[in-house]
């Protein structure tokens, strides 16, 4: 199957909750070909992270690969392939790769990263025994001292007993998610990946709970102050 190269620029990408952010007066900024809401109109002033902070990072480049040769293909391409199921390892130039299955991997670039998008180009429409898993996941970040209380209202996992750096496949407010507990600016944080068709619903539910606990929806700039201009 021939694939002609397209001379036109790549199509613009939009967060699945673009409209909800626009309604909050988002300041949009293009970083590395991806658009982020760096600040929202009603965000509290200053740099502090609120009691609970909810942030949309849905522009990050993602790639899924699955198949008997997937691990090999990644390794050859310079990726530190996680050995254990659900283990997360860093990608060169920022971001992470997580093992989602015996033969399945999920890559997400950091804000300034490019490995996932390079590999996506390289993969094209697919290779032998390595198949593209289309990933257009919404990425939500929840952090702050009360982030655990937000999770307690939506998710039945005991996070005190959760292994750091391991993805957890579970349900949040009734929606299947992959969850990665992490630390951001010394605070406990939760990264949620989910099917984008559920993103507007889950976002609204999380916003209500976050705000009821005295938290705020924030732009990406609050959590990543060195966002390139």
């Amino acid at each position: 199957m021939n694939v002609a190269m397209n001379p036109a620029p790549a199509a613009a990408r939009r967060s699945p909750i673009h409209d909800a952010l626009e309604a909050r007066g988002a300041e949009w900024r293009d970083v590395n070909g991806t658009t982020f809401a760096v600040r929202l109109r009603d965000e509290p002033a200053g740099d502090d992270i609120p009691a609970a902070a909810l942030c949309d990072l849905s522009g990050l480049n993602q790639l899924g690969v699955k198949g008997p040769d997937a691990a090999n293909w990644l390794s050859t391409a310079g990726v530190d392939v996680p050995a254990d199921l659900y283990e997360s390892r860093p990608l060169p130039s920022g971001g992470r790769v997580v093992r989602f299955g015996a033969h399945e991997f999920f890559l997400e670039d950091g804000i300034a990263g490019s490995k996932a998008s390079e590999l996506s180009e390289q993969l094209g429409f697919g290779a032998e025994q390595v198949y593209r898993v289309e990933h257009q996941d919404a990425t939500f970040l929840l952090t702050g001292p009360r982030s655990l209380d937000v999770m307690a209202q939506t998710c039945g996992i005991d996070f005190r007993e959760a292994n750091g750096g391991r993805a957890i496949f579970t349900r949040v407010a009734g929606v299947s998610c992959a969850l990665l507990p992490e630390t951001i600016a010394d605070q406990q944080a939760f990264r949620l990946w989910l099917d984008p068709s559920y993103a507007p619903y889950l976002w609204e539910e999380l916003v209500v709970i976050v705000e009821s606990l005295g938290g705020h929806v924030v732009g990406a700039g609050r959590l990543f102050p060195d966002l390139p201009a």
Binding site: P16, D19, T154, A173, G174, S197, P200, Y201, L202, E205
Partner: peptide, 14 residues
Amino acid sequence: GRRFHPQRRTPLDG
């Protein structure tokens, strides 16, 4: 409680 009723939308919903 909060009555979680997941709903799905396409990217063109707006």
